[in-house]
Computed example of a mutant assay.
Amino acid sequence: MRARDERIEELIAAAVADDLTPVERAELDDLRAVHPWIDDEIASLSRVAARAAAEGSGWRDLPVSAALRERVLGSASAVTAAGRSVSVAPRRWFAPALAAACLVVGIVTGFGVASLTAIDPEPSLAEPAPTGPVGTLGAVEPVAMRADPGIDVDADVIAHTWGTEALLEVEGLAVGETYAVVFVGEDGREYSAGEMLGSEVPIVCRLNAALLREDAVRMEIRDAGSDVVAGAELPSA
């Protein structure tokens, strides 16, 4: 259930590259109405692409070792094996994706140490998925959500240095109604992770709250009247 729709991925990539046809733009607008997270995804990727372009003038060529080449090629194979085909619209993905990769591994001249240390130290696609206790960065933690009749929720949470991410797939919410995703801390304080609209089709979204995973004790989905329609206690560290 967790795999993201390849067509949405393609349209997001085309939007970031400013390469949408009129028909594709209309299709993307329809999807935005159903999936509010699409705008956040486009904005996030656009910032990465803009940053890569700004840093481009400071790049320099470095010799590539055989070990590094093998690792990069291995990463590409892992992506393909996971079902995220790199053959979809290559003109749209490769340039910004490669630039972003260069920023992460730090081969750009003038790219400060402070900027590098701010990047969440999570593993690359070529490495095994991290596991560990609550608060392990990048570890996907399944959450058993109890929901009102007619509502089905598939949920995971992921710990990051900037907070806690919720991965949700939800069916059965009232169409057009607004729902909020909220994390509750140990002290009872509530932290918003964002909102979504009920839809006739399954909602697949990623939301973030400014609360460290080890400090979060509960996750809830609430309707416009603040009634909890789905929720779960989160294991403590």
Rank of each mutant, 00 (worst) to 15 (best):
S77K: 13
S77F: 08
A78F: 11
A78D: 14
A78E: 13
A78H: 15
A78N: 12
V79D: 04
V79I: 15
V79Y: 03
V79M: 13
V79G: 08
T80R: 06
T80K: 04
A81H: 08
A81I: 11
A82Y: 03
A82W: 01
G83T: 15
G83Q: 07
R84N: 15
R84P: 04
R84Y: 11
S85I: 00
S85R: 05
S85V: 06
S85D: 13
V86H: 02
V86W: 02
V86F: 04
V86Y: 02
V86M: 10
S87D: 12
S87Y: 05
S87H: 06
S87V: 13
V88E: 09
V88F: 03
V88S: 09
V88P: 01
A89L: 02
A89F: 00
P90L: 08
P90W: 06
P90M: 03
R91E: 15
R92Q: 10
W93T: 15
W93P: 01
A95K: 01
P96C: 07
P96E: 08
P96I: 08
P96R: 00
A97I: 05
A97H: 05
A97F: 05
L98E: 03
L98M: 11
A99G: 15
A99M: 03
A99C: 04
A101I: 10
C102D: 06
C102M: 05
C102T: 13
C102H: 03
L103P: 01
V104Y: 04
V104N: 05
V104A: 09
V104H: 09
V105P: 03
G106Q: 06
